[in-house]
Design a protein around this nucleic acid. Structure first.
Lengths: 145, 145
DNA sequence: GCATCAAATTAAAATGATTCTAAATTGTTG
DNA sequence: CAACAATTTAGAATCATTTTAATTTGATGC
């Protein structure tokens, strides 16, 4: 298969260097699969994916990658702090490319997430964490129907 | 099998009427299984269960009930407003016997939940729900490690 | 009481997201 | 370019949960 076929509408030249930099920064080997997934994840700006949705996106973009690798990569990126896991539904796991302080709207019928900037949100009256426990995160989820 | 065997240590006389009242109130047929599960759920006061944990509790209490029925019953009780589903982990679904306004501490290592009374919690700065969407609930989860 | 019938229960199979395994492939390093 | 560890992958395994289809049971009327 030719790399560039003049007869086909060409996809915009993707910037691989940003993805490469991110992988290097977190010391993950820049394999073909990780580079491609990083581009799909981080070039479009903040959004949410599931393993399935990212896998489909990869296939649509002609990236040869297995679903197992998509799962592996999502977890590695999350462990590295490039992604954040959002638990809103027992049906499946969502990953968020926005790793800054924020909360979520969750559209229960569509299974869609929308970010809420955390800077403006002020929560008062929460009890202190029990002795010996450390707060890893506070999640606010506004469920919509 | 005799209803009462004088040779066996007798389990304390459980108050079935409360469970019965609850089932009647939500128009669920008071079957042996539902009555027993209602007692296990609602007599001890507020607590959290999973299908597995309630099933084990039932077995320990010599209640003959299948895991499928435990699942069915938890969902029916939830639909009836007797229970509330708490989504904190993709590993399994938690059900809460406390259905009043409140939030949660979640101990991620133990998988345990602790209620936070919602009356004292004040959340400011949340954006309004998108046009056409209705807020079904706001969940605050404080994750502890 | 007893028959009737819809509702409920159940064992077992099916599902579906996710993880694991073990073999093949691929970056990296000297 | 050899060597080796890291990565990928197909396919199997896992595990919570749901479904199926058959059996059992509670409610109702007689």
């Amino acid at each position: 298969m030719p790399i560039f076929n003049a007869m086909e509408p060409q996809s915009p030249p993707t910037n691989i260097s940003n993805a490469l930099q991110r992988l290097r920064a977190v010391k993950l080997r820049p394999t073909r699969q990780r580079l491609a997934l990083a581009q799909l994840l981080f070039e479009p700006g903040d959004h949410h994916v599931t393993a399935e949705s990212l896998y489909e996106q990869a296939q649509a973009a002609n990236v040869r990658v297995s679903l197992a690798t998509v799962y592996n990569t999502l977890h590695q990126f999350t462990a590295a702090g490039l992604l954040r896991e959002v638990v809103v539904s027992s049906a499946c796991t969502y990953f968020d490319t926005n790793v800054s302080d924020h909360h979520h709207f969750f559209f229960e019928n569509r299974g869609a997430l929308v970010d809420i900037d955390g800077a403006n949100v002020d929560i008062r009256g929460l009890p202190v964490a029990p002795e010996g426990a450390r707060v890893s995160r506070i999640d606010v989820i506004i469920r919509l129907t």
